[in-house]
Design a protein around this nucleic acid. Structure first.
Length: 255
DNA sequence: AAGCATAACAACCGCCGGCGG
DNA sequence: TCCGCCGGCGGTTGTTATGCT
């Protein structure tokens, strides 16, 4: 059984006071942020858990952190990235200079989620709710008729695949993305296509390739010549810097 | 003005994987 | 190989602010 990161009896909890912020800031100014967060509170004279100190520093005290209103462009970007990546807040935040995962997550939960819901869009699936769903022609495989994969977020862990219609007729429960309005989610994970497929993402200015290779179901994201292996979901952070926005939005899928 | 409901924000909790001894 | 420490991460809860009746 792991020891708790600190003795709860001797630590403050809740909102940070100005004095505590000052102490933490002074300590980091003197000693830098590199070091052991576990021992920092004692060294800095704080009655806080090391984790709490780290969070406070990363989310609010760090000089490059951007506090305050999100712009329209940031809203769009978050929605689009969330459609692609799901709740991988650190990855999403990585594309937003000065924003932290915690801030993005909170902003999503308090603003953007509601905004999408009000627009009749399912924020989890990035699909129109049934009520707002447009009519699909069957057997069409055009960009306009493609739908979005919300389950991209689950891809690494569950090895779900982002699947194209692949000659299947459109079904009533096909989902349409708000952000992309374009990719299809194949709900049958076992019927994965085994070919490389290219999609156009009209509103999603992303160019990337995702592949899932059997039998290890290793997910890869490729961008141009770069190939990033993703053996497990934690290493996804490696991908963030390689996600790339281009003027020719294309999603390449192959399995 | 008071009380309640909801939104927005801040922080905590616990799981997980990497790493070093 | 095992074990414990550490930090990253996402989910959740707690607190404060704001709006409405």
């Amino acid at each position: 059984m792991r020891k708790p990161c600190c003795d709860k009896r001797d630590t403050n909890k809740g909102t940070w006071s100005k004095q505590e912020d000052e102490k933490l800031l002074n300590y980091i100014r003197k000693n830098g942020e590199a070091g052991c967060w576990r021992t920092l509170p004692r060294a800095a004279g704080l009655l806080r858990c090391g984790k709490s100190c780290k969070l406070r520093w990363i989310n609010y005290l760090r000089p490059d952190v951007k506090i305050g209103n999100f712009g329209e462009d940031e809203d769009d970007l978050i929605i689009k990235l969330h459609a692609l990546l799901g709740n991988r807040w650190s990855l999403i935040a990585g594309r937003l200079p000065g924003r932290t995962d915690n801030e993005v997550k909170n902003y999503w939960n308090s603003h953007l989620r509601r905004k999408l819901i009000n627009m009749g869009i399912d924020p989890n699936k990035h699909s129109l709710t049934r009520h707002n769903r447009p009519h699909h022609n069957s057997n069409t495989n055009t960009s306009a008729s493609a739908t979005l994969i919300s389950s991209a977020s689950k891809l690494p862990k569950s090895h779900k695949c982002i699947a194209p219609p692949n000659n299947k007729p459109w079904r009533d429960n096909d989902q349409v993305s708000d952000a992309a309005s374009c990719l299809l989610e194949d709900e049958d994970d076992d019927n994965l296509p085994c070919s490389t497929t290219q999609y156009q993402l009209p509103d999603l200015n992303l160019e990337l390739t995702i592949s899932v290779s059997a039998p290890n179901s290793t997910a890869k994201l490729e961008q141009h010549d770069h190939q990033i292996q993703e053996p497990n979901h934690k290493q996804c952070s490696n991908i963030s810097s390689d996600l790339h926005f281009s003027s020719t939005p294309t999603l390449l899928l192959f399995h």
